[in-house]
Design a protein around this nucleic acid. Sequence first.
DNA 1: AAACCCGATGCACAAACGTGCAAGGAGTCC
DNA 2: GGACTCCTTGCACGTTTGTGCATCGGGTTT
Lengths: 323, 323
Amino acid sequence: MSPSKAAQLNPKTRDALTAAQLYYLQDLTMDAIAHELHTSRSSVSRLLGHARETGLVEIQVRSPLDMPRQLEGDIRAQFGITAHVVPVPDQTSDVERLDRVALSAARILGGFIDSNMSLGVAWGSTMSALSRHLLSKATHNSTVVQLNGAANPRTTGILYASEILQRFGSAYGATVQQFPVPAVFDDPATKAALWRERSISRVVEMQKTLDTIVFGLGSPFAGVPSHVYIGGYLDDDDFAQLRATGAVGDIATVFYREDGSSDGIPLNDRSSGPSLDVLRGIARRVCVVSGESKLQTLRGALAARLITDLIVDSGTARKLLAG
Amino acid sequence: MSPSKAAQLNPKTRDALTAAQLYYLQDLTMDAIAHELHTSRSSVSRLLGHARETGLVEIQVRSPLDMPRQLEGDIRAQFGITAHVVPVPDQTSDVERLDRVALSAARILGGFIDSNMSLGVAWGSTMSALSRHLLSKATHNSTVVQLNGAANPRTTGILYASEILQRFGSAYGATVQQFPVPAVFDDPATKAALWRERSISRVVEMQKTLDTIVFGLGSPFAGVPSHVYIGGYLDDDDFAQLRATGAVGDIATVFYREDGSSDGIPLNDRSSGPSLDVLRGIARRVCVVSGESKLQTLRGALAARLITDLIVDSGTARKLLAG
DNA sequence: AAACCCGATGCACAAACGTGCAAGGAGTCC
DNA sequence: GGACTCCTTGCACGTTTGTGCATCGGGTTT
């Protein structure tokens, strides 16, 4: 009877789609939808949750064209980048602030991802939080690539970093490219040798042709130390050296100063992350920052032109502009 | 202190925007938002309603790319047009069905509208329902043009038609172009004379260069008669004549047969609506149909290639394909 | 076949939400 | 100044929604 083959799709997805139509586009109550779908209201509630999580429903909040958002416009004017300011009340705890920024970042990131795309991701507490909030979005032929190694003298770090990577991969239906090397090498010669290994150099080459990267900022000397600095990745000598050379932060374990320079920071020769020049060659560089302790670090990254899209909480955004 | 002039925007809109961000993007409860905005929860509820109505929040339901919606794909395959099928259970009353289709149509239409655009709108029960559900969307320099007159021997029809027009105008911030003429002239010569008046010919010319039009279908002989046919627009002779010439429906009081032809239907010479050739010259022609009583009428409009985008309830869509 | 696991379901309850209503301004007219 | 309208606010109530829990059924392991 039907002009084409019967629906061959997952019935759960089909129901979720119908429910979403009825709920979001026709304003029916879940009760009414339950009746139409011959199920219970609670199932409809779960169905809708499923629809939201899997990206069947997309909710956008857009400021009217005639009133660009204040802080975001100011940041564009001053730094020449696109900003997404996440409103968070000032007295919020650091933990909650990070979580709320990460939640928004995850949504925004979904808009940047598409088929045939390669995405580089760093790791750290910001990326970990972000990865937990990703909304799935079906893509074809896309790849998620780890930016820097996660092994340190204590652990291989593979579990931690790969958990983040995997979440990205499954959210976007992308293949995942791990990078099983130490975060920071003891001996730069070892790094050079390893970089000649085909299995490793393949990933290094992929990193150079990424379409988009996402990262948080590491701030070694800020009040709240980043994951990198309490995980045993660096020893006391390393810290002393960083301080002596004036480093204020890192992206994927590659360090820079507040003025944006990074020459003559010896640690970078031992780092597994892509050089800042490589990063600057990537078209879209999404930076997620939460909390004023990262302010100095953020200034450095901006001075180094390492960021094209910034996602930041409102308090930090204000301080950034005020300073 | 602030790097740019303080926010000069409507505080209500600003709050609505913030609330929408917090609610839809950060999943806070209204209570929490009320606390952050220093207002009551009920105000936040209203604020969010305002945000949805004014298009600050946009909710899309998109089927995953790998499973295009069944009926819509079938309709495209068979008729070469874009369809939006609105799921409605079969036993729904005609009134509710119309309302639900109109609600969805209003949302979909919002996606078609943009600045610098001219939109032609018909009138009738479908358009009336549609107009009541429009979501506002700010545009510049756009115009809404009435497609056909609404006066009849009993009333000037201005109130009825202009109410619809006004709703479109205020939803999109567009200027409204009325068309104060009878729906159907008694004497074609009067129409010809009036068409030479500059005030009228201006509108007639505008109709020829529209970017988009929206209309329902009139079905004179269907079980449920359309607004046009019970409002005193046509007399018994007119009906007899329509039946004799094989007309099955009209768009903006211009009639056509089931095979799509419209030559030799005398009533069309007296009608105030744009000729079907004019309609076919318009890039996007959005048709809203609800209920199986319009099936035959819909077939005619499709045969006449009068539709580029069809918004239709699921039952009618199925019947359309089955027939 | 029994034991087990896992996801889906509906129930019941608490939490979250929409809205009629009356009260409280702000502005306007007399 | 008083009386009026019009808009906004918070409250209170009934409705709608999220979710822990117990249950159930299909599939897999032992």
